[in-house]
Simulated scan of single mutants.
Amino acid sequence: MKNDFKIKMFLQTKKKQFKIWSAFTILLLIIAFIILISWILKWNGASITHHDGTKDKIKVLGIFDLFLAPIHGFVSGAKIIVFFSCIGWIFKYHNLF
């Protein structure tokens, strides 16, 4: 009787499946990679040359920028987000389609 239970439990266990990362996780990894590149370019002494011939040093991004970048992105895209939310509300409640 006990062995039957163990066999059933063994047969019911599934292999762990690969789970895809969320879009937010992928974006944070991309931003972290850009922060790392900014530090590497600063250590190498790289600079930016503008069209008018002036040179600027590369600004280094910090860990705080990693968390502020998504917030700034949502704030800059707020008009578009509100527009599409309103369009969705109109289609949902007025049965246009």
Rank of each mutant, 00 (worst) to 15 (best):
M1I: 12
K2T: 14
N3W: 15
N3P: 14
D4H: 10
D4G: 11
F5Y: 14
K6Q: 15
I7P: 11
I7C: 06
I7G: 08
I7N: 06
I7Q: 09
K8A: 12
K8Y: 11
M9S: 15
M9K: 08
Q12Y: 11
T13L: 08
K14A: 14
K14L: 11
K14H: 06
K16H: 14
Q17C: 12
I20G: 10
I20V: 06
W21P: 14
W21T: 11
W21S: 13
A23G: 07
F24Y: 13
I26F: 15
L27D: 08
L27G: 08
L28V: 02
L28D: 02
I31A: 06
F33L: 07
F33H: 09
I35F: 00
L36D: 15
I40F: 15
L41G: 07
N44W: 15
N44D: 08
N44M: 15
G45H: 01
G45A: 00
G45M: 00
A46G: 02
A46L: 02
I48S: 12
T49C: 03
T49A: 05
H50W: 15
H51Q: 10
G53H: 01
T54C: 04
T54V: 01
K55F: 01
K55Y: 03
D56K: 05
D56A: 13
I58T: 03
K59E: 07
V60E: 04
V60A: 13
V60N: 09
L61P: 09
L61R: 11
I63P: 04
I63S: 06
D65Q: 07
D65S: 07
L66S: 01
L66G: 05
L68P: 03
A69I: 07
A69S: 04
I71F: 00
H72C: 09
G73I: 09
F74R: 02
F74V: 00
V75G: 00
V75Q: 05
S76R: 00
S76W: 05
K79N: 09
I80S: 13
I80F: 09
I81L: 04
I81C: 00
I81E: 08
V82C: 03
V82M: 01
V82I: 00
F83S: 08
F83G: 12
F83R: 07
F83A: 08
F84S: 03
F84Y: 07
F84E: 00
F84R: 06
I87G: 10
I87N: 06
G88C: 02
I90D: 03
I90F: 10
I90Y: 12
I90P: 02
F91C: 09
F91W: 02
F91Y: 04
Y93D: 01
N95S: 12
L96A: 04
L96K: 07
L96E: 03
F97C: 02
